[in-house]
Write a protein that binds this DNA or RNA. Structure first.
Lengths: 241, 241
DNA sequence: TAAACTGTGTGGTCTGACCACACCGACGAC
DNA sequence: GTCGTCGGTGTGGTCAGACCACACAGTTTA
């Protein structure tokens, strides 16, 4: 009749309601697990299942011990949860890699165009300093890590946390594919040099205020890399021993 | 030294590895909780915490009982997890409502432009039949529900599951705000009529193959609604008794 | 004064015990 | 033979209780 909700959902909904009503805010401590258990009339294990979900979603941080830094604290870090979600969805083929790349294309092009059109134009100092760091001799893995960070700084400059978090998730979900791609390229130094040129071009386009060409530069930058590396649609139909 | 991972992370990582290596695919059954517990050398409660995460993320479905439909089954439904994540992030003010709306703007405009430019053009029959259903007299809540579905069918027509899932999540995260907005409008019937006109306009723009105006039509459609409804940046700084 | 020690409460984990449920096979009535 | 019925069995869902390692705070001690 009443369609009994599961015990952990009761906990999750109670916490969500407290968040929406402002009884809980970022930085606040959640009641202890034993207290929540008693308050809500569920077992402690059910409370823990709900807390685990919140933790993976990036909403809380937990620490052992006592004192002001212990317990479950609301943090609301958008990035972590998005990465976990997308990584697992890609792993389970719920998300096609191709769709992830296309979505990246849409979001990053829009961000670049937006940055170019904004006034006052946000500072790109963080992005530029990353580019400088990438000039040195780096392994493919190191380069890709900085490359990812560079793209994230652009999203960050737009000030839109949703886009930033989504892009971080998209990126991390195909991180392993990007690494494979780097290994499949004829000459990595040449590719890296081209990517760097394109990065500079993107920055220039943004700083010159040319929305259309900034968006186009990002688009061809990303699409070009994935085309060059012959991106797999799915991988590993064969198993290791 | 070894930085012991937490027990539930061991479970999560084991399952993710099985997914990536193809040992687990959508439709497969996970081993029973007791079996996983024994195999991985962790307690059953830790296994359950990991499974709960996977369930909320939309990766598995669990059912009690025995037989082929029982147990934990890989489903990889992208929508549910995205909605939960974004809803909670908005509730915890990790995501600003304004950023959610802007992101919707970017994604939906891109989808419309993409649909208009695609060849062969995907069928919009599902979208159109929803529009027809919306012509009848409806309450604001009913209208908004169909409206949300209409926008989703457009994303669905693009065939990009990542964008579809993301849009569904964005939408659900601000669903309550959209309802509040409908109540704040001077004349809801007038607003609804306008929204319907704009919907038809979007469909027409897509079907005429005009990418630019399709994107622009979606952009002004969404931006207009949120502007008209005087969207709150945050809400409920005051509490009920 | 400063260092060591103990008390206490936290999350993290495991174990064992139930429950409701859904299947499935054996058994019996017809 | 066929068709109900009726336990047996294994599943997830939940709870209770017990430890542990840890971090802090207050007290005791050198």
């Amino acid at each position: 009749m009443t369609d009994e909700p599961r015990a952990w959902q009761v906990v999750l909904e109670a916490i969500e309601r407290d968040l929406l009503d402002g009884r809980l805010r970022p930085g606040d401590h959640l009641p202890g697990e034993r207290a929540l258990s008693a308050d809500l009339g569920v077992g402690r294990s059910s409370v823990r299942e709900a807390l685990r979900v919140l933790e993976v979603l990036g909403l809380i941080r937990t620490s052992t011990g006592s004192g002001p830094n212990s317990g479950a604290i609301i943090v609301a870090l958008p990035g972590g949860g998005m990465s976990a979600l997308m990584r697992l969805q890609v792993a389970a083929t719920g998300f096609a890699v191709e769709d992830v790349v296309k979505t990246r294309l849409v979001l990053e092009s829009a961000v670049a165009a937006d940055l170019a059109g904004a006034s006052p134009r946000p500072s790109l100092a963080a992005s530029v300093s990353l580019l400088d760091a990438m000039e040195s001799e780096l392994s493919a893995a190191e380069f890709l890590a900085l490359d990812a960070e560079f793209h994230l700084t652009l999203a960050d400059a737009s000030g839109n946390q949703v886009i930033t978090a989504t892009m971080a998730g998209l990126r991390s979900s195909i991180e392993s594919y990007a690494r494979l791609g780097a290994a499949s390229v004829p000459s990595w130094p040449d590719t890296a040099a081209r990517l760097m040129r394109e990065h500079r071009g993107i920055i220039n386009a943004i700083e010159s205020g040319d929305s259309a060409s900034a968006g186009a530069a990002v688009h061809s930058h990303i699409a070009g890399y994935y085309a060059e590396t012959n991106f797999p649609t799915h991988r590993l139909d064969d198993m290791p021993a």
